[in-house]
Simulated scan of single mutants.
Amino acid sequence: MNMPDMPVNVPVDDPNADTEWNDILRKHGVIPEKPPSPTAELEEVLVQARALAHEHRLEGKDLDELAELEDDEDDDFLEHYRRKRLAEMSTIASSAIYNQVYPLQKPDYSREVTEASSKSYVVVLLTASLSSNAESRILEGLWKAMAEKFGDVKFCQIRADMCIEGYPEKNTPTILIYKDGDIKRQIVTLRELQGTKTSIRDLERVLVSVDAVKPNDLRLSKNPDENEWAQNAKDSADNEDDGSDWD
């Protein structure tokens, strides 16, 4: 008489343990195969990351930096990046059609800002009416530097109370970033940046955050010394008298 198949309770202390008993159970399908070691997976990911970083090690380097690597890198590899940089520089030059700060009048706002943002990013600075507003004075100087540096972005400026009736002085300076007719980001005063210590690098990060400038753009500041000329612009703005195009 054949006995019916009966379930067999197989003792398993730790199904993930490396034991001879567990190997037998895995062989017969009693317990599942042991999952791969997280450490091994992590090592594989790290190896791939290092290989990718090595492959793209010249990304972000300008022509001068590439020239310094002539003794350390393969000539063909360097030439590939030289051509890439020259192509990027050509694209930047051809798209740099603004390169200045555009003063706005309220009747022209829709055409010069909202409609113009269908072609490029438009960044508007609403300044204070009082010369005692230090943040506005600082940002006006930086605005000129940014406009010259990023000529494919249209930088505009208007006194806040001439643009929006009753706009609170305490909310100036205000930055409005437009693209395709919409406001992509609004910054009220410099509190969320660095206050009166706001630098050109802070403004660059804002442009990168809205995709107005790519993170690998060759024009982005690479070290603090590159802010010196922007600081000079700020100092110049602080020394100007109250008479300006925005009054």
Score class of each variant (00 low, 15 high):
Lys119Thr: 06
Gly141Met: 02
Thr91Ala: 11
Glu148Cys: 07
Asn227Phe: 03
Lys84Leu: 15
Val123Lys: 00
Ser136Cys: 01
Asn223Gly: 15
Val113Gly: 03
Ile177Ala: 13
Leu69Arg: 05
Arg82Glu: 13
Arg82Gln: 11
Ala67Ile: 08
Asp241Cys: 03
Met6Gly: 02
Asp161Gly: 01
Gly195Thr: 06
His56Asp: 07
Asp5Ser: 13
Tyr167Trp: 08
Ala40Lys: 13
Leu104Lys: 00
Asn22Ala: 08
Glu226Ile: 05
Val213Asn: 02
Tyr178Asn: 01
Asp18Leu: 04
Gly151Pro: 14
Ala160Val: 02
Thr19Asn: 07
Leu207Phe: 15
Ser244Ala: 13
Asn99Pro: 06
Ile183Glu: 15
Asp241Leu: 03
Lys149Phe: 04
Asp180His: 07
Ser129Asp: 09
Lys184Phe: 08
Gly141Asp: 07
Glu240Trp: 06
Val113Asn: 04
Ala147Val: 01
Lys154Ala: 01
Leu42Gln: 15
Val206Gln: 04
Asp5Ala: 14
Thr39Phe: 13
Pro15His: 00
Asp241Glu: 11
Arg111Cys: 01
Pro215His: 06
Ala96Asn: 15
Ser95Ala: 14
Thr19Cys: 04
Ser132Val: 10
Asp161Lys: 08
Ile183Tyr: 11
Asp5Phe: 12
Thr127Val: 09
Asp62Phe: 01
Ser94Cys: 05
Asp18Val: 02
Asn232Pro: 00
Glu204Pro: 04
Asn239Tyr: 10
Thr39Val: 15
Arg185Gly: 03
Met6Ile: 12
Asp182Glu: 15
Asp245Met: 12
Asp71Arg: 10
Lys149Gly: 04
Lys179Ala: 04
Ala230Phe: 06
Ala134Asp: 12
Thr19Ser: 15
His28Cys: 05
Lys144Trp: 14
Lys34Thr: 06
